[in-house]
Simulated assay, not measured.
Amino acid sequence: MGDFDIRTADLRAVNSMTKYPSIPTYHALDPRNGGLLDECVPFRGRVFLTEKVDGTNARIISLPDGSWLLGSREELLYARGDLIGNPALGIVAALRPVAERLAPAGRDVIRVHYVELYGGRVTAASKHYTASQRVGWRLFDVAVIEDYADLLAAPPERISAWRDGGGQRFLGEYDLLKSAAVHGLEWVPRLATLEAAELPTEIEKMHALLGERLPRTTVALDGEPGPAEGIVLRSEDRSTIAKARFQDYERTLRRRGGRR
């Protein structure tokens, strides 16, 4: 696969195959009211807990011909060499210097660094991370796509089904941290490593674990650290992943308390 050319490639396909998939909540969401159900995602082996930063998902897409793209969660915003980029949420301004110093992906793969951009005016929660509207970012995942040639020729619905069905290959914990170190990228903070059997399955106990492990954000850019959004849980090989947000547990427990 040495004939990729960003000038002729279907960028709609590239955008679709590199979007970050949705992550389930650790306790399932009730579609009727958005509360949490008792059913939870099953884990095996070691589970790594990281801070879930309240910002916006952004992508640095390194392509086989040495070019690169920057994107938000849903759309592409900038290509290497562009004179004008989409200024949405400050993603291009923050990540262009990072993309410029990343090593090329290689001739046979598309590599995607997924980061959470936060602070500034990115979300309503930005004030929890900065008092001066500083902007920061943290790496949380890396995908390596080797079968891109077939996907570039595929219809949109097939690419979406491939992505939503777990077709993207993400680096496991060891390789993710190694890649971050090699490229000089800051990752989302590691909070704890637990055995799957240690994870609470009750909603009340999971809420207590959140408060114990992450009473305040650990990635404040300046000022007093504010409340954290929650925790992401990952298996060692990254085959299982889930998120646990304070607001989901607090809303559920308030409702349950109101019914007593």
Rank of each mutant, 00 (worst) to 15 (best):
D3N: 01
F4N: 00
T8E: 01
T8P: 02
A9Y: 00
R12A: 13
A13P: 01
N15L: 12
S16V: 11
M17K: 00
T18N: 11
Y20C: 09
P21F: 02
I23V: 14
H27L: 14
D30N: 15
R32A: 14
R32I: 02
N33W: 01
G34H: 04
G34C: 03
L37H: 06
C40V: 07
V41Q: 11
R44L: 07
R44G: 12
R46S: 13
R46Q: 14
F48C: 07
L49V: 05
L49C: 07
E51S: 11
V53F: 12
G55N: 07
N57L: 11
N57I: 08
A58G: 02
A58I: 01
I60F: 05
S62D: 12
S62M: 14
S62I: 05
D65A: 02
G66L: 10
G66W: 10
S67P: 10
L70H: 03
S72I: 05
L76G: 02
A79C: 12
G81K: 05
I84V: 09
A88P: 05
V92E: 10
A93N: 13
A94E: 14
L95N: 09
R96Q: 08
R96D: 06
P97S: 03
P97R: 06
P97Y: 10
P97N: 04
V98D: 01
L102G: 03
A103H: 14
G106S: 03
V109R: 00
I110V: 03
R111C: 08
V112L: 07
E116I: 05
T123F: 00
A124P: 06
A124W: 15
S126Y: 02
H128E: 09
H128C: 09
H128Y: 15
Y129L: 04
Y129E: 12
Q133H: 14
Q133T: 11
Q133C: 10
R134G: 11
L139C: 04
L139P: 07
D141K: 10
A143S: 12
I145F: 05
I145Q: 02
I145L: 08
A153T: 01
P156D: 05
W162Q: 08
D164R: 15
D164N: 15
G166Q: 07
R169G: 04
F170S: 01
Y174A: 15
L176Q: 13
L177S: 14
H183D: 13
G184K: 07
W187C: 14
V188T: 14
R190F: 04
A192C: 10
A192N: 06
T193W: 12
P200G: 05
K205Q: 14
K205N: 12
M206I: 03
H207R: 13
L209W: 08
L210R: 00
L210Y: 00
L210V: 03
E212T: 12
E212K: 15
R213T: 07
L214S: 03
R216N: 10
T217L: 08
T218P: 03
T218E: 14
L221G: 03
L221K: 12
L221V: 05
G223D: 01
E224C: 05
E224Q: 13
E224H: 10
G226V: 02
P227L: 06
E229L: 09
E229M: 10
G230W: 03
R234M: 08
R234S: 10
S235E: 06
E236V: 05
E236Q: 12
D237R: 15
R238M: 10
S239N: 07
A244D: 10
A244F: 04
R245F: 11
D248R: 06
E250H: 02
R251C: 09
L253N: 00
L253E: 00
R260L: 15
